[in-house]
């Protein structure tokens, strides 16, 4: 998947912090996915403006010792397959 692509949440899908669960979740019609910490950090940067490459750069600045690129690619892959995301 090209890192130039710009992800945005599918209409009707809402990403938000849930204080009671101390986690980010993705809410959609009659359902909810609880995201792990890594997925939550990627999710926070999905705004329909940033490309995948920009998301990777932002996270790499924050976590210089980790291989962020592969993790972000994996997340995009899965989220796209599950139709959580669309690409602009």
């Amino acid at each position: 998947m090209s890192r130039e692509r710009i992800p945005r949440w599918r209409p009707g899908y809402r990403f938000q912090w849930e204080p009671a669960q101390e986690a980010f979740v993705l809410l959609y019609p009659e359902g909810m996915v609880r995201l792990n910490d890594g997925a939550g950090m990627v999710g926070e940067l999905i705004d329909g403006q940033r490309s995948i490459a920009q998301i990777i750069t932002t996270l790499s600045d924050e976590f210089p010792d980790e291989d962020i690129g592969g993790d972000v690619d994996d997340f995009m892959q899965v989220a796209h397959e599950k139709h959580w995301l669309q690409f602009a």
Partner: peptide, 19 residues
């Protein structure tokens, strides 16, 4: 009800009413 993302039920105290 579809996935709620909740996994291991807590046996001592009920979980949250997600719905």
């Amino acid at each position: 009800m579809k996935s709620t993302g909740s996994s291991s039920p807590d046996t001592t105290r009920p979980g949250m009413p997600f719905w």
